[in-house]
Design a protein around this nucleic acid. Structure first.
Length: 271
DNA sequence: TTCCAGGCGTATC
DNA sequence: GATACGCATGGA
């Protein structure tokens, strides 16, 4: 990693890393735009990250936190240039990678990602962000599974998450008791991990896949939402290429961002 | 007013 | 196992 610690700020030179494309592409919901960059959180650890000419600056960060937390979170050890070269053998993926070549897959916290994507179902991104922000306000930070599991439906009604409130409490209970062991699922077989996650009421195939991809960095996970359904129907009628299976989740993130932004020019087709 | 949003649980066949 | 429907909320 090419970085310098200058007066408490980490100045990083990093290829294939665009802040807008990475932090505002629908994979994480707690980053807000500030001047030249973003302010956001990993659980209750906060960071301001900005772009200055040819480097990215992580503000007021110790070198230890950078190396132990943020370098991992921003997946700095993965060569996205190489991934994009592989993906670009495919015509559609090639366009998606060119459209937003600075996307990196964030290695988020497993519990935070699980909650986030439970909230995401049949919802839109601005509302998902609002619900999560209200949850953090209500609990004075992102609640642990234990904290959330001891709350009642009535107590979390200010989230205005609708029918998802009961799903959050069920997830919190099962994680708090260890019935769903997120640490163990990080190394479990994909099939077992999916089955275990879907014991949670409100976690189906799509949310389980998102929890695995974004919260446990299982990059073979391939969440299929309404947008990816459209991509598959239009560009991959015979299925997603098996040659990319190993990193299908990363490919999926390029495609998701690409088609969502194309849709602002052309209304999406109902599938 | 109606439709839709990073889906899922339930009922029904 | 497949398909149809309701679901909370709020912006377009």
């Amino acid at each position: 990693m090419d970085y310098r610690n200058i007066g408490g700020d980490i100045h990083l030179k990093q290829a294939d890393f665009d802040l807008d494309e990475t932090l505002d592409c629908g994979q994480a919901f707690r980053w807000e735009r500030v001047a030249d960059g973003y302010h956001g959180f990993l659980l209750n650890k906060s960071l301001t990250i900005t772009r200055h000419s040819d480097s990215i600056v992580l503000h007021d960060t110790t070198e230890a936190d950078f190396l132990n937390i943020w370098a991992d979170y921003f997946d700095l050890q993965t060569d996205y240039g190489e991934l994009k070269r592989q993906f670009s053998q495919d015509e559609t993926l090639s366009k998606a990678c060119k459209f937003a070549g600075g996307i990196r897959l964030l290695r988020q916290d497993s519990w935070e990602a699980l909650c986030s994507f439970i909230i995401s179902q049949n919802n839109n991104i601005p509302r998902i962000k609002g619900i999560i922000a209200r949850m953090c306000a209500l609990f004075d930070g992102f609640p642990t599974a234990e904290q959330l599991s001891s709350a009642t439906l009535e107590e979390i009604s200010p989230l205005r998450a609708g029918f998802r409130n009961k799903y959050l409490l069920d997830a919190a209970g099962k994680v708090a008791t260890g019935e769903v062991d997120l640490e163990q699922l990080k190394t479990a077989g994909m099939s077992d991990a999916r089955t275990n996650l879907m014991k949670i009421s409100g976690v189906g195939p799509k949310v389980a896949e998102c929890a695995l991809l974004y919260g446990m960095y299982r990059v073979e996970a391939f969440p299929v939402d309404v947008w990816i359904k459209r991509v598959l129907a239009e560009f991959y009628p015979n299925g997603f290429p098996a040659e990319f299976a190993e990193n299908a989740g990363v490919a999926q993130q390029y495609l998701f961002h690409y088609v969502r932004n194309l849709a602002t020019e052309k209304p999406p087709k109902k599938v």
